[in-house]
Simulated scan of single mutants.
Amino acid sequence: MNNSPLQNPSLLCETTWREIDLSAIGSNFRAIRGAIGPNTKIFACLKQDAYGCGAGKVASILCAAGVDAFGVVSIADALAVRKAAPRKPILMYPGIGPSAVGLVRDLDLTISISGEEDLASWLSIGAPLKVFVKVDLGFWRAGVAPSNLRRLMDVCTSHSNVTVDGLYAHLSELGDAGSSTLTQVARLTPHLAGLKAEGRLPATVMVSSSESLLNHPEFDMDAVDPGALLFGLTRSRTGRRILPIRPALSAIKARIVALKTGHDSMGAPPDLPGYHPDMRLAVLGIGWGHGIPRRLGSSASVLVRERRAPIVPPIHLEHLRIDVTDIPEAALGDEAVLLGSSGADRITLPELAEAWNTDETGVSCGLRESLRRIDAAPIETEPRRRGIT
């Protein structure tokens, strides 16, 4: 079924939707591939339903583009990816346990092992296992401590039903509160050297995801697992690599479902920011049930008929209000743009993230399934370049 609003008139009945530029994902992937070269594998991280873009569709696009493997967290995403990519490796990040062994077998999944207790729980089922060992280099999340890595590898290799296909880490995103990237990788380097000298180094060693891929080309190693970068969501504004990327989430829109002008018979305007006597109020068919935050920044606005209309609180489950006093031609059924363009004006993803008190990834992954996804034509704008020369 075609999800384009131009070729599928039923979408004109929707009161709210998001538009996904699927071509951006393929373009972003090719930019990453060109940057890292052909000898480093790309494990496309499609967690959170491919950052809200639809894991199945994204997996199909990336398979056609030549991706090497996928990384996911949930079984739901694993099912969607496996259907779209019957033969590609799928790495399960920490999150599932031995109760999922049937699906692990049927979907041919590679599991993550983060410690001896983790391994013991999987060994208790007696099934053949393909694993990646995860190391915590200072993220203070899932993964074995570097000091225990060699012992965990010993335990893994002592069991004939366990095949260690890789070893990986996710570098800290704790900023100044955590260790630097160089310090974190230095904790792993001697262990890699020791395993290599013993002939026990797994075929795939991976530490770089989106941010480190941009800033530390020296740590590409055997593979990288970008996620946010594939969807144009990475936070970096500087880096050693320049990548022309654009956001896959290209628009969030809603229709005006009610209009009224304030009147004395309604009582005094609420004692809340943005209300005033005789204001013309429009109600949009979108609310926190679709993923809009309940509390927005004071600058939050939408575009109606190419002009800005402030959002006034509060936000409801399925509705939000906007002040269209200065847009007298606004009418029922009009399209209001929360993200995207209307005429010469545009609300960008960074601007929306600031108004929503989050970051770009928080916007994309915070939208709920009730906000319908449709395929959008690519936007003819210059892609943002992440990094500096």
Rank of each mutant, 00 (worst) to 15 (best):
I374A: 09
G232S: 10
G262I: 02
G262P: 05
A203G: 05
A35V: 09
P328H: 06
A64R: 11
Q184H: 00
K88D: 04
F231K: 10
A193R: 04
Y51N: 03
P86H: 07
L12T: 12
F231M: 08
D106R: 12
E14T: 06
W140A: 10
M1E: 11
G232N: 11
M153S: 03
E351C: 01
R235S: 15
R246E: 04
F139Q: 08
H159T: 02
R18G: 05
G126W: 07
D345G: 12
S4I: 02
H316R: 14
F43I: 05
L107N: 12
I61T: 13
C13E: 15
I286W: 01
R385S: 15
R295H: 09
G143R: 15
S160N: 06
H316E: 14
I286K: 00
G239D: 02
S27N: 12
R295T: 15
R235W: 14
M266I: 11
S74N: 02
R308M: 13
L119H: 04
G138A: 06
G175V: 01
V304G: 15
P98A: 14
K41H: 08
D21N: 06
V312P: 01
D326K: 14
E218M: 07
C63T: 15
R30F: 02
L367K: 08
E369M: 10
N357V: 10
G262M: 10
T181H: 07
G267N: 05
I42K: 04
V207S: 00
K253Q: 14
A336G: 09
G26F: 02
L129F: 09
T389C: 08
G138L: 04
T358M: 06
L195K: 02
D334I: 06
T325D: 00
S10T: 13
L188A: 07
Q7A: 11
E382W: 13
F139Y: 06
R150K: 12
P89M: 00
S112C: 11
L149D: 04
I61Y: 09
R280N: 10
R294D: 15
L123N: 00
Y93G: 03
V283F: 09
D176I: 11
R308E: 15
D154Q: 11
S121F: 03
T16E: 09
L152P: 05
H276D: 07
A142C: 08
S298L: 10
Y93A: 13
T204D: 05
K196C: 10
A84W: 03
A177H: 09
R105D: 15
G71F: 05
C53R: 02
A24H: 00
E218H: 04
T15M: 07
S210T: 06
N8M: 02
T157Y: 10
L152D: 06
A55R: 01
